[in-house]
Amino acid sequence: MLPRERQQQILIWMEEEGALRVSEISKRLTVSTATVYSDIKPLVEQQLILKSLNGIYYLPKKTHVSSYVCSYCNKQSNTRLSVQLIKLNQRIEHTCCAHCGLLRYQQIGKEVSQIICYDFLKDTMISAKIATYVINSDIHLNSCQPQVITFESVKKAKQFQSGFGGSIHNFEEAIQVMLEEKNGDRCCQPKRKRIEKNKRYLHG
């Protein structure tokens, strides 16, 4: 089977199954994992699939971007800190940062097929579900508080933490931290809720 034929077969599997490990693809195609990595490289570059440490994920071809405004706090979200939530209906929601992305996922998780963020150091796409999160570091970025920064591996997160502090969490833990901060009123809130809260304050 030629490389182009293998790539087409990989895309068929990805569209049907959503995600696969490289070792599984290697087994199905009866080729080495090195060959699989070579085959998927152009697919990743064309953003047809997403490669992560645990495998590869399918990115729907026909998606509708709802807006580049954060769907949680209404800030502009077309930055390297943004998070994409790909919904089952193939619409894409953007959030301005991982902080809002985690909270938005907690709200609509059942509607989401994939959630994607960017590695802070490499600026490459990674699956948010297997990313490592550093929360409340000393570095100051233009993002919502408490600040959340994403990394593709625990090792990279620990290297960053050694210089800039913060706490390290996996996906589920990071969501829980955001919920606790939200309940403690130290977290940004959706614009509508902030407006309602301000009205209550102004009118006693």
Rank of each mutant, 00 (worst) to 15 (best):
L179D: 09
Y58G: 00
C70F: 02
P146T: 06
M178G: 05
P42V: 05
E5P: 07
G204P: 01
K155V: 10
L53D: 12
L2W: 06
S71P: 02
I10Y: 13
I195Q: 15
N170K: 10
L85S: 13
Y118P: 02
Q106N: 15
C96Y: 00
Q145T: 11
I12M: 11
Q8V: 02
E45T: 08
Q161N: 10
F164V: 04
I195K: 15
F160T: 00
L81C: 04
N136S: 14
K156F: 08
C188H: 10
R21I: 00
S137H: 13
N142W: 05
H169M: 01
Q84L: 14
G101V: 02
I139M: 15
S153L: 10
Y201S: 10
K193C: 04
K41F: 05
S77C: 12
L141H: 15
I86G: 06
Y72A: 01
F164T: 07
Q76G: 03
E181Y: 01
S71W: 00
K191P: 00
G204C: 09
G166R: 11
L141T: 11
V31I: 15
S71E: 05
I108F: 06
I139S: 14
R194I: 06
P146I: 07
D138R: 09
V31G: 09
S153M: 10
Q114A: 11
Q46G: 07
E16R: 12
F120Y: 09
R104F: 04
T95E: 03
F151V: 01
M1R: 13
Q76K: 11
I108Q: 06
H140A: 15
L29R: 12
E24R: 08
S162W: 04
E16I: 00
I92Y: 11
I168Q: 14
K62I: 03
C70Q: 00
C117M: 08
K193W: 06
V69K: 05
I56R: 08
N183H: 14
N170G: 07
C70S: 08
L179H: 08
A34Y: 08
A157Y: 01
K62M: 08
F151P: 01
I49H: 03
L43W: 03
D39F: 02
S143Y: 02
A19N: 09
E24V: 09
E196Y: 09
Q159R: 07
S71Q: 08
A157M: 03
S66V: 12
K191M: 14
N198E: 15
Q161Y: 04
S67Y: 11
N54T: 06
R200I: 09
L53K: 13
Q189N: 08
F120P: 01
G101H: 00
I108N: 11
E111Q: 13
T150L: 05
